[in-house]
Structures are given as C-alpha cells and as structure tokens.
C-alpha cells in the first residue's frame, strides 16, 4: 500500500511511543489498531478524522482499514464527546430496578438526550451494556468512576 509519508503526523511523541510499545509485543503493526485508537483517545477524548489518518499512517494501514475497526467498537468515539462520558447501563437488571427513571432524571437534569453532549461540554450521555454490578443496580459510570445503587437524588448529588 502506498503511504503518504508527507503528512506531518499530528500525533504527539507520547502517543507514538505508547503505540510503539504496544506494537513491540505484537506480531505486526496492524494488530495494534485497537490499542492505538484507545491510546490516542485517552489523550484526546475522541478520534477525529485527522487522528484516524495519523494513526493509520503510523500503523501502515489505510484509513478505511482502520476506520472499519474504529466504527465497530462502541468505546471508540468517532465524534467529539464531553469532558466525561456517562455510560449508563441500560441492560436488564438495571431496567428492572427502574433504570429508566434514572435515565429520565439524568436527561432532564443535564438537559441532554442519549448520545448528546451537555451544552457546557462537560458530559456526554451514552448507553452501555451491563456494567457487571447488577447487585447494586441501577449503575452508571461517569468517566472512570462507577456509581451504583442510583436513585434520582443520587443523580442530583453526582451532577451537582
């Protein structure tokens, strides 16, 4: 494949060295595709087209090859997200435990719909598959932090 070597890489040194570290214990560069996407996302919050192109270049694959992978996974964000992503479990136990009410509460409290980012760019609300904390349903993650046994008042506290 012909690579455009001339695109100045918008990846930072730190990103590149993190990615190269992943590559070092894989049989080929392409195998690091998901790791690379996650690394860059961890620095930038999401994967812009420019980031995607730069990662593809670094991994010696085409944008198509990389984006086909990126768009498969729900935790690779190909659109901008807020400072923190709210992953609200919408699976069965949380549903039984009135997760819908929690969802309504978050939506009205933050004035967003599922998939949207708050006006202050602080939060993006996304549904997520069962977070493995069903004995404390309803459950959500805000950024890296797990919140469980949610009630509408807890929601207000968390997003105060």
């Amino acid at each position: 494949m012909k690579l455009n070597q001339n695109i100045p890489s918008p990846l930072s040194e730190a990103e590149i060295s993190d990615i190269e570290a992943e590559i070092s214990h894989l049989p080929d560069r392409k195998s690091a595709a998901i790791d690379a996407l996650k690394i860059v996302q961890s620095y930038r919050g999401w994967i812009s087209d420019a980031s995607l192109g730069a990662i593809a270049n670094l991994l010696q694959m085409s944008n198509e090859e990389l984006d086909g992978i990126a768009t498969f996974y729900n935790l690779i964000y190909r659109r901008p997200v807020g400072e923190k992503v709210i992953l609200l479990c919408d699976s069965v136990t949380c549903w039984i435990m009135d997760g819908d009410k929690i969802c309504q509460k978050i939506k009205s409290h933050l004035n967003v719909e599922q998939g949207e980012t708050t006006a202050d760019n602080k939060f993006t609300l996304l549904p997520v598959t069962c977070l493995g904390d069903c004995d404390h349903a309803p459950v959500m993650m805000v950024g890296d932090e797990l919140h469980h046994d949610l009630t509408t008042t807890r929601v207000e506290e968390i997003f105060r």
Binding site: S31, I69, Y73, L75
Partner: peptide, 23 residues
C-alpha cells in the same frame, strides 16, 4: 483492554479483536 462490544466475549470474536480487527 477491550474497546467495547458484547460480541467480543464470544471466543472467536475475541480472537479477532485481540488481533486488532473487527470482532
């Protein structure tokens, strides 16, 4: 560390994902 998707738990999808491909 996975990038999401329930299907990754299926063992052969998991392998594709580990290889850095669509799961």
């Amino acid at each position: 560390v996975s990038a999401g998707r329930y299907i990754c738990g299926e063992e052969t999808a998991l392998l594709n994902s580990l290889e850095g491909k669509r799961a």
